[in-house]
Deep mutational scan, measured.
Amino acid sequence: LTVEVTLDGRRIELHGLSEEAHEILRHALERNADDKEIKKILEELRK
């Protein structure tokens, strides 16, 4: 799955996400998580 997010003013596409990762990010974006929170989530998903 692919998600497009804006971090530090740049639009980035995240490819190859699992369903779980996609859901976690989608929920964070829906509640307008800040860049710091999104980065933390991405860091966790990379593990």
Rank of each mutant, 00 (worst) to 15 (best):
L1C: 04
L1D: 04
L1Y: 14
L1E: 05
L1N: 07
L1G: 07
L1A: 06
T2Y: 08
T2I: 09
T2M: 10
T2W: 11
T2L: 05
V3W: 07
V3M: 15
V3E: 03
V3P: 03
V3N: 03
V3K: 03
V3G: 03
V3S: 04
V3I: 15
V3C: 07
V3A: 07
E4H: 10
E4W: 13
E4F: 13
E4K: 07
V5T: 02
V5C: 05
V5Y: 02
V5N: 02
V5R: 02
T6E: 08
T6K: 04
T6C: 14
T6R: 05
T6G: 02
T6N: 07
T6W: 14
T6H: 08
T6D: 05
L7F: 04
L7A: 03
L7W: 03
L7R: 02
D8M: 04
D8T: 03
D8I: 03
D8C: 15
D8Q: 07
D8P: 02
G9M: 02
G9A: 02
G9K: 03
G9F: 01
G9L: 02
G9Y: 02
R10L: 13
R10A: 08
R10E: 12
R10P: 02
R10M: 14
R10W: 09
R10N: 10
R11V: 13
R11H: 07
R11P: 05
R11E: 05
R11K: 11
R11I: 13
R11M: 06
R11N: 06
I12N: 02
I12T: 04
I12Q: 05
I12G: 01
I12R: 03
I12S: 02
I12F: 12
I12Y: 13
I12M: 08
E13M: 14
E13Y: 15
E13K: 13
E13R: 14
L14H: 01
L14S: 01
L14F: 08
L14R: 00
H15N: 08
H15W: 15
H15L: 08
H15M: 09
H15V: 12
H15Q: 08
H15F: 14
H15G: 07
G16T: 04
G16C: 08
G16F: 09
G16H: 10
G16R: 05
L17W: 04
L17Q: 01
L17M: 06
L17T: 01
L17A: 01
L17P: 00
L17R: 01
S18T: 10
S18N: 06
S18W: 04
E19P: 12
E19F: 14
E19R: 11
E19M: 13
E19W: 14
E19S: 11
E20I: 10
E20Y: 14
E20C: 06
E20N: 08
E20Q: 11
A21Q: 14
A21K: 03
A21N: 06
H22L: 14
H22C: 11
H22Y: 15
H22T: 10
H22Q: 09
H22S: 11
H22F: 15
H22R: 11
E23K: 14
E23N: 13
E23P: 01
E23H: 14
E23T: 11
E23R: 15
E23W: 15
I24H: 07
I24N: 06
I24S: 06
I24E: 06
L25S: 00
L25N: 00
L25D: 00
L25G: 00
L25E: 00
L25I: 12
L25F: 04
R26G: 02
R26V: 10
R26K: 09
R26D: 01
R26H: 05
R26I: 12
R26N: 07
H27R: 15
H27D: 09
H27Y: 09
H27L: 15
H27G: 11
A28D: 00
A28G: 01
A28H: 03
A28V: 04
A28W: 08
A28R: 02
A28C: 04
A28N: 01
L29D: 01
L29H: 02
L29V: 07
L29E: 02
L29G: 01
L29R: 04
L29C: 04
E30K: 12
E30C: 14
E30A: 15
E30R: 13
E30M: 15
R31A: 07
R31L: 07
R31Q: 07
N32K: 12
N32W: 09
N32E: 08
N32P: 03
N32A: 09
A33S: 05
A33I: 05
A33M: 06
A33R: 05
A33H: 04
A33Q: 04
D34P: 13
D34M: 06
D34F: 05
D34H: 07
D34N: 11
D34V: 06
D34C: 06
D34A: 09
D34L: 08
D34Y: 05
D35I: 09
D35H: 08
D35A: 09
D35K: 05
D35Y: 09
D35P: 09
K36W: 13
K36Q: 12
K36M: 13
K36T: 13
K36A: 14
K36C: 08
K36D: 13
K36E: 14
K36P: 06
E37R: 03
E37L: 07
E37M: 07
E37D: 06
E37W: 07
E37P: 00
E37K: 04
I38N: 00
I38R: 00
I38H: 00
I38T: 01
I38P: 00
K39S: 09
K39R: 13
K39E: 08
K39F: 14
K39N: 07
K40W: 13
K40Y: 12
K40C: 08
K40R: 12
K40A: 13
K40P: 00
K40H: 11
I41S: 00
I41T: 01
I41K: 01
I41Q: 00
I41N: 00
I41V: 05
L42R: 00
L42N: 00
L42I: 14
L42C: 03
L42K: 00
L42V: 08
L42Q: 00
L42M: 07
L42Y: 04
E43P: 00
E43D: 11
E43A: 13
E43L: 15
E43C: 15
E43I: 11
E44Q: 13
E44D: 11
E44S: 12
E44I: 14
L45E: 01
L45Y: 07
L45R: 01
L45F: 12
L45S: 02
L45D: 01
L45G: 01
L45H: 04
R46Q: 13
R46L: 15
R46S: 10
R46N: 12
R46D: 09
R46Y: 15
R46K: 12
K47R: 13
K47Y: 15
K47W: 15
K47A: 13
K47H: 13
K47F: 15
K47S: 12
K47E: 09
K47G: 10
